[in-house]
Design a protein around this nucleic acid. Structure first.
Lengths: 355, 355
DNA sequence: ATCGCAACTGCAAAGGTTTGCAGCAGAAGT
DNA sequence: ACTTCTGCTGCAAACCTTTGCAGTTGCGAT
């Protein structure tokens, strides 16, 4: 039923190859012929069959984007940015949700491998080994995680966590809890490491609670444990958990920030709308989405199938790190102790390089 | 580089057609042969090329899912439900965001047409005519909208709006504002119609404010106008707008619900977490996602290309309507007037059929 | 007049898979 | 012993497009 290239060829009295060129290499065909072909195509409602095209060119002009949980407001800005960036390069983005499930992730990579030119893995929960192995099947760019040998774009949550701890310390908090995220999350490990170092540097104790599901419920569920732990401040793996935590603390009669200060991470839109407004670490998610698309498409210009040009065997495996910043709102307040130092506490933490 | 069916055939000493059948019609091949083929395939890491398969069978086993705005928390539950339902039927869902832009919608339908077996259009902003026309290119199921001749699944927001108005009236509100949604939204028209009827029935005045973008900002922006309008209650197009509105009203010193009552629609997860918790119309989004997938796949069983079987020319264009219900939380309270009637106000509204 | 060249177009192979048809062996039925 | 059937396998066409190569035409240059 749908018109094929052959129908157009017949209708316009040229060979199918001319029709093909009219679309994929217009400069190679006589303007007069071209317009006639275009008219016929228009009239017949012809659209090139992308499956057939992909079969022979090896390029689909599609990009897959896998996120751990599409219900997490952290992702939509990233997705939208990636989509608009891709659209500019004449690519389409297909989004899929993996339900935070490594098995689903693997299956989806296989399923998508042949239907896309590359895959953006956002916060994957698979093992590094598996990711590396899968990358032989289809070009991969990893977001929110480092995988050696693969291009990746990460946000410097370590720095953000450090800033958060220093902020809390500066407010006079000495007993801080870290509300951990999901097992298998690179970001989670990073936060934990950096927060641990920062706490040590400022002389605070850090209690790690977790792992937990990175959702409101994950935060809700830990409220009582936080209360019992006796800490006066909490750094949460993400804003969603922070919001859930605050909500439940409130039900328990614990006030934020007067009783306990809470800091989130991500700066999702919602964090500006809850009461109290959330102090949080802002991550440049839109920039990450754009950067990931750019990295994926970096080697693309028409290299038909192979791994870029023969000469430069290794794909340049750039690793982009985007800076984060602390946004101070209303969920953090003075703690029980006098601030440690008049000077910026940051000066006391000359540990590792930034990333 | 990736192993093809031919490689497997060579390795296992059979014809490619046998390999093909091993995967797509196992019962037609000798168990012994089959296991040998499977072993070789496994060993070579062979995976059928879906593009090639799609080319000949005409089925991709993919479903496209277009949403107006992926950042709207209304959609993720729908998406997740659709994905899981599709997975059970061995289909994959590709999600795309249209930015509430009809032009993007049209372009995406064209782009996806040949790469999916069908498309789920969620809250499309295109004209009915265009949608009908596009439906000749690829099977379509419309969600959150009625398009004559096309299968659709809608939530009965009209009923929900009526319940909301009756609830407000019952609380003693007589001057109610309707915070309208985006132009082109079927849901918006439906709410407006039903709310108008219900207001008339209970003897309240309904002021329509809009259209507005269906986001927090859309609600924020209208707060002052709401305040000036002198109404004591507001029904918002969706929860996001309601939340934005409440937030800004609060900044303006207007308290919810003591000064103004606010009702949202959708019952997104967030509406349970804001302060005050939002009274809202719950829509069964997950059920909608499942239903949409089912409708799309209803005629599928292996009909290779054509419009179902020859006999029943017309695709059954079922229209599923899902019920909504009012969830009363903390954003609505007593109004300035005595409740109209002791009896349930609903009795006074014997107007049209439910949907 | 001839040649070279540019611009355009047609030919046919290729890409990986599915599937109707035909072939084959062996078993079962007569 | 002959046919019929069953169960399995191979053959080759088909799906729709792209693209290297070769062919045609017309033009300016020699």
């Amino acid at each position: 039923m749908p018109a094929t290239i052959r129908d157009v060829a017949r209708a316009s009295g040229v060979h199918i190859s001319t029709v093909s060129r009219t679309f994929s290499a217009p400069h190679l065909v006589n303007p007069e012929t071209r317009s006639r072909v275009l008219a016929c195509a228009e009239h017949l409602g012809y659209r090139p069959n992308r499956a057939a095209r992909a079969l022979i060119t090896g390029r689909t002009h599609n990009i897959g984007l896998m996120v751990a949980d599409i219900a997490n407001p952290f992702f939509p800005p990233l997705i939208k940015a990636a989509e608009s960036q891709a659209r500019h390069r004449d690519y389409h983005i297909f989004v899929t949700d993996t339900n935070e499930d490594p098995a689903v992730e693997e299956e989806l990579v296989h399923a998508l491998a042949k239907q896309v030119d590359g895959l953006l893995l956002c916060s994957p929960r698979m093992s590094n080994d598996l990711i590396q192995q899968l990358s032989r099947e289809v070009p991969l760019v990893v977001v929110n995680r480092h995988v050696t040998g693969l291009p990746s774009v990460v946000m410097d949550v370590g720095q953000g966590a450090r800033l958060a701890i220093e902020h809390l310390s500066g407010l006079g908090h000495r007993d801080i809890a870290l509300l951990g995220g999901p097992r298998g999350s690179w970001t989670n490990r990073e936060i934990r490491r950096a927060a641990g170092n920062a706490a040590r540097a400022v002389g605070a104790t850090l209690t790690v609670l977790g792992p937990n599901p990175p959702t409101e419920d994950g935060g809700l569920a830990m409220a009582e444990q936080v209360q019992r732990s006796g800490v006066t401040a909490v750094l949460a793996y993400n804003d969603l958990m922070a919001i859930g935590l605050i909500e439940r603390l409130d039900s328990l009669g614990v006030r934020v920030p007067s009783d306990i200060s809470v800091v989130g991470i991500d700066d999702i839109a919602l964090s500006r709308l809850t009461r109290p407004k959330l102090t949080t670490v802002a991550t440049p998610t839109a920039a990450a989405g754009r950067a990931a698309v750019d990295m994926l498409l970096a080697h693309d210009p028409s290299s038909p199938r192979g791994r870029s040009i023969a000469g430069d065997g290794r794909r340049t495996t750039a690793q982009v790190t985007l800076q984060t910043e602390l946004v101070i709102r209303d969920s953090t307040g003075p703690g029980p102790h006098r601030p440690a130092d008049p000077g910026d506490a940051a000066a006391a933490a000359p540990d590792g390089v930034a990333s």
